[in-house]
Design a protein around this nucleic acid. Structure first.
Lengths: 196, 196
DNA sequence: AGAGTAACCGAACGATCGGTCGGGACAAGG
DNA sequence: CCTTGTCCCGACCGATCGTTCGGTTACTCT
């Protein structure tokens, strides 16, 4: 067969270990020594699989960004009434966030110290802008309240959704992905008050 | 007079410079060399004013936490109907966030690598818990929807409020503190849909 | 004028940083 | 058997980390 047994590291399997450590200690707070201990191989062996620390970061944020931008290509995000497309995107964002949790977490914590980080920030801004346009269209349709500025509302809604990475943990049967998505959609569109 | 002219650094004025750099580069991504350049004094001179890098972090997060916990001691947060106390706390949180922006920003990005950071995380959790109890009481009064779990709703609302530090900038006349507070209260309690 | 001290500096400390290097263990294919 | 390539290692590189130290200004108080 072409694919032999894999009891050794691939760039991908090493990435999943690295991203976990990055999220625990922060990217800057993580040394290659930390990574080698978590992976169970020596520091120099890591360089057999990846070019360096920054490549691990780039691979991770790329994966997260691909997941997010993929949402916008889906049919329900492209056709239909703006407010319904918006609700679909919000729900799918929660799903992508939880499915690719460690990668998205890392993406959302990037600060911009290196070229890779600045590229990630730029692509994030682009995604935010695309969703803001959706909200703007929904407001123009009259399906969304007009007394809160679109740009401000977008930022607050993103803040709520993105904050999921700070506490959501998929393992223990604490909370389902569907339950979180439902709650977010409820709060974003109807708020805390008793439903009308 | 006792207070002479101050064209030199105090622990407080040095802190405001340090916190700004911490927020730009991240705490771990900031070296004492970075701080010395931003402050305009040599690296060793910093140690004349503060004990070290970690003390700067401790002073900063302490100031942020004092501001937040101070809210809970105010009269409107202690007496009255739970849902109204909750709205008051939410509004005051936005005010404290914007007033002490760099300090709260730093607090919200702490990861837990050192004892100081773990202490900050613990106190944050305590504050979150206090607000969660307020939301729970409002739900028991029937003033807040019951179909979204209290713990989940608290986390999402905190996520929205805390995300303000990611984009709010007080300088240019871009957006007023009052406008942000109004928008947050509107979205948290009534959501995006047209007001009932 | 002289003493005291707050504010600051350059040089250097041991430790750790991300990354390199030459080579060893081992399995596959001839 | 020997070669080839994958996977990994310990030792080491120059650079930078947070911090310390001895010493020099410059201002205040007597």
């Amino acid at each position: 067969m072409t694919t032999a047994k894999r009891d050794t590291y691939t760039p991908e399997s090493l990435l999943s270990v690295a991203v976990q450590v990055f999220n625990e200690r922060g990217y800057d707070g993580t040394s290659m020594e930390h990574l080698s201990r978590a992976a169970g191989i020596s520091k120099s062996s890591i360089y057999h699989h990846v070019a360096g620390k920054e490549e691990l970061l780039r691979r991770a944020v790329s994966r997260a960004l691909d997941g997010l931008f993929g949402i916008l290509d889906e049919e329900h995000a492209r056709v239909g009434r703006a407010v319904e497309r918006l609700e679909y995107v919000v729900r799918r964002m929660v799903e992508v966030l939880t499915a690719e949790l460690p990668y998205v977490t890392l993406l959302l914590r990037v600060r911009g110290n290196t070229a890779t980080e600045r590229w990630a920030l730029e692509r994030r801004r682009e995604f935010d802008h695309r969703v803001a346009e959706l909200l703007k269209a929904a407001a123009a349709d009259g399906d969304v309240r007009g007394d809160v500025e679109v740009r401000l509302a977008t930022r607050l809604v993103f803040g709520m959704i993105n904050s999921i990475v700070e506490w959501y943990r998929p393992d223990g049967r604490g909370m389902g992905e569907r339950e979180v998505a439902d709650a977010v959609v409820q709060l974003v569109f109807s708020g805390l008050h008793r439903s009308r």
